[in-house]
Simulated assay, not measured.
Amino acid sequence: MDAEGLVEVVLPGKVAPEGLQIRQGTVPVAGPGQVVIRMEATGVSFAEQQMRRGRYYDQPPFPFVPGYDLVGTVLSAGEGVGPGLVGTRVAAMVKVGGWASHVRVDAADTVPVPDGVGAAEAETLVVNGVTAWQMLHRTARVRAGQTILVHGVNGGVGSVLAEFAHLAGAKVIGTASARHHDALRDRGGVPVDYRTEDVAARVRELAPGGVDAVFDHIGGRSVTDSWRLLAPGGTLVSYGTAATRDDEGSKQWPVIKLLGRVWLWNALPNRRRAFFYNVWAGRAFAKDGFRARLHADLTEVFGALQRGDITVRIAAQLPLTSAGEALRLAESGTVAGKVVLNP
């Protein structure tokens, strides 16, 4: 057992970032098929921003420990786990529970981190990298020569998505505020300022026949505009409802409305397709298949980072006990890249 003991961050209810609580306890013990990971890096994602408002559509009841993903070293393993896993650096996607010094997970849910890839760098790509890779290659199946629109191209998912699309030979149009435009241009993309330009008009100017795919995390009215910008045979991939982050009322209703739109669009006699992407899709019904895809895709993502094909942006690294400050910083809209928490 680790002599340091367990330290974890608790989200007690709908609170300001400063309302997060620090709790100490005993390091968990690995059960059969499980490992205990000593966390080295965990991140602040948009999911936690929604959760503290009670707006994440399937979050657990308060209080709970947030933290969507983590990277760390396997401290101990339970019965049925090969001894070779202990002492290795792994990544895990957990949805909640990652903001802790020690996290217990099923060994089958861990993915090895390659040598030479740092914990913080790997952490920025766990949920963001898998989401970007799967939406681009498994859902939209973007090919060389196609043109895509990425909303929020400076965000955690959008920035990785743009890099993978560029690697695949696609042209990227990305929406972002002006201060992020040079970064997109450096990666071969074309920026559109959503604050000062008519996005739909500008995209139609850049792609008169429509775009081959749109990746929309905004939801609301944006997703309807995204659908209208598709070329024949194009694909809309909706993967969030960021526009409703600060709304009151039901947290499920925006997702239900979005799913209804997707169903209706796909039922229409047209050549376009719409999807609502959920990184957890299939886990409840086909856990082995879900794990195999996650392992394969995250391995691809880490490999791209190891080869230098993609880059990562770390906005800041703060200690776990400063999670409130980290969450406030991530929500400020003043940083580029991911805010990472360290032990």
Rank of each mutant, 00 (worst) to 15 (best):
V130K: 04
H137E: 09
V190W: 05
V111W: 03
G118S: 10
V190A: 12
T147C: 05
D109T: 06
G189W: 01
D109A: 12
V172M: 03
K95I: 14
D186S: 12
V142R: 01
V211A: 05
V153G: 01
V105Y: 00
T110C: 13
V150E: 08
R202L: 12
G152Q: 04
S177N: 12
H181A: 12
R138V: 15
E123L: 06
R143Y: 02
F164S: 01
P114L: 05
A183K: 08
L136G: 03
R195C: 02
V142K: 00
A165S: 15
V157K: 07
A122W: 09
R104G: 13
A140K: 02
K95N: 15
A162L: 12
V211D: 04
G188N: 07
W99T: 11
L161I: 14
A107M: 03
N128E: 06
D109N: 06
T139C: 13
I148W: 00
A132K: 04
G158R: 02
G169D: 07
I148M: 05
I148F: 01
W99E: 14
A207K: 02
I148A: 14
D198Q: 08
L206C: 14
P208W: 03
R179A: 01
V190T: 15
V142C: 08
A178E: 09
L167F: 03
A132W: 05
V214C: 07
P112R: 10
A207L: 03
A119V: 05
T175G: 08
Q134P: 08
D115W: 06
A178C: 02
V105C: 04
A207W: 00
L184H: 03
A120F: 08
L161Q: 11
S159K: 03
L149P: 02
T147F: 01
G210K: 06
H151I: 08
V214F: 00
V111L: 11
V211P: 04
W99H: 14
A183I: 05
V105Q: 00
D115L: 14
V126G: 11
H181G: 09
A168M: 04
D106G: 15
A165H: 11
G97K: 01
A165E: 11
H137M: 10
N128C: 10
D186W: 02
G118I: 08
V150T: 07
D182R: 11
H181Q: 10
A100L: 07
A165T: 12
T196M: 13
R185Q: 14
A183M: 10
D212I: 06
A119S: 13
H181Y: 12
V111I: 15
W99L: 14
S101R: 11
T196N: 12
F164G: 02
R187H: 15
R179V: 01
S101L: 12
W133N: 08
M135T: 13
D115C: 09
V127D: 09
V203E: 01
A200Y: 00
D106K: 07
H151L: 13
A176L: 15
K171D: 13
P191N: 09
Q146K: 09
V172F: 00
V142Q: 03
A207R: 01
Q146E: 15
G145C: 06
V214M: 05
G118T: 08
R141Q: 14
A122G: 11
G118H: 07
V126Y: 13
A140D: 10
A107Y: 02
W99R: 10
A122F: 14
L161F: 14
T175V: 07
V211E: 03
